[in-house]
């Protein structure tokens, strides 16, 4: 997988890292059970602060994509690819709703009604 971040984009760096890792997990480029690179290694490779990577990994953990284990780092969960695909679909939904002028409460209402 290719992780590419751009410091001139409006999206924060941790968000760029998280979304690209999500995309890679969704597409099966990073398989369940695989370890993501250590935060230190990733930070050094893309020249960002260690906390930026840790923040990105926390986002992935909160979304149910990875498990953060002491000394083993971030490991992709078996349900990770499915959760990642869902996360991407949610992102597309939010972007589409924003594009059509929906507010956050309106979108939540729409989802709740559909549920």
């Amino acid at each position: 997988m290719l992780l590419r971040i751009d410091t001139t984009l409006a999206e924060p760096l941790y968000g760029q890292i998280a979304s690209q890792l999500t995309h890679a997990i969704a597409r099966g480029e990073i398989e369940p059970g695989s370890r993501l690179p250590s935060a230190k290694e990733l930070a050094s490779a893309v020249n960002v602060n260690l906390h930026t990577v840790l923040h990105a990994y926390a986002v992935l953990r909160d979304a149910g994509l990875v498990e953060l284990r002491p000394r083993r780092g971030a490991v992709v969960l078996p349900s990770g690819p499915m959760a990642a695909r869902l996360m991407e679909q949610v992102r597309q939904l939010v972007e589409a709703a924003r594009g059509q002028g929906f507010s956050q409460p309106e979108l939540i209402d729409l989802v709740r009604n559909e549920w």
Binding site: M1, L2, L3, R4, I5, D6, T7, T8, I30, P37, L42, A45, V46, N47, V48
Partner: peptide, 14 residues
Amino acid sequence: RLGLTDSEEALWLS
């Protein structure tokens, strides 16, 4: 070539 700009950093894992 990938065409990285000066503001970009990248990591390739394979």
